[in-house]
Amino acid sequence: MKIIVNGEPRELPTGATVADAVALVTAAPSGVAAALNDEVVGRSRWTATALADADRLEVLTAVQGG
């Protein structure tokens, strides 16, 4: 299935979770948050949250700014 991760289309196997998709872009153990279709998914729920085709996942962290 195709998932949009941070604006980029990614191919993931059926049954893949938020944790799988996050792992494509970062291995950071903290300081990262994810939103699935504009809803925040807490880190504790990443492995239990299954993705569906065409889902949009945003994975953010803190950068210099402000």
């Binding site: 941070n6 872009v25 948050a33 945003e58 953010l60 962290t61 803190a62 950068v63 700014g65 402000g66």
Partner: peptide, 8 residues
């Protein structure tokens, strides 16, 4: 302050 952006 920090900003929030897509992970790089």
């Amino acid at each position: 302050t920090v900003a929030m952006r897509r992970v790089d």
